[in-house]
């Protein structure tokens, strides 16, 4: 039951109508992070349609999607795969103890030149 609610939540806050997808794969044809993804952008749309939320939540792709919006821009059906990916990522980080980066790991990752913008955006994407 819980999964069903989770699925409908993710669908709702993705803010996009995945049923409009015509399975053309243009999103995946355009994606710059494609080769760094285990589940591809078009599969986020089709698997959400099928209700397979668990598989998506475990995917590596939610951390490698760049939110560059190329897929959203080019979808001929007005579907927004990046928004589905973000909704799944939110579903993951909104769970307790599921943050992707921990504050204590940061010092090791940064150097003099790193802009604040990078830290803030990474935290916004990966943590809750």
């Amino acid at each position: 039951m819980e999964d069903k609610y989770l699925l409908s939540d993710v669908k709702r806050y993705s803010g996009t109508d995945t049923s409009a997808c015509m399975r053309c794969g243009k999103c995946s044809g355009r994606c710059p992070a494609y080769n760094d993804m285990d589940i591809k952008p078009h599969q986020f749309v089709t698997l959400i349609e099928r209700g397979d939320i668990e598989k998506l939540m475990q995917s590596k792709s939610i951390w490698t999607c760049l939110s560059c919006m190329a897929c959203v821009e080019r979808c001929p059906r007005n579907v927004a795969p990046a928004q589905v990916i973000e909704a799944v990522r939110d579903a993951v980080v909104r769970q307790q103890y599921a943050n992707k980066i921990k504050a204590e790991d940061i010092p090791a990752k940064i150097d003099e030149t790193i802009p604040q913008q990078l830290l803030v955006s990474a935290f916004r994407k990966y943590n809750k």
Partner: peptide, 19 residues
């Protein structure tokens, strides 16, 4: 599948990226 982008290359070729 569908083509996402066509990149014209300096060598005159067209790099077609698609799924």
């Amino acid at each position: 599948g569908m083509v996402g982008k066509v990149y014209p290359q300096p060598n005159g070729k067209l790099l077609v990226q698609g799924s």
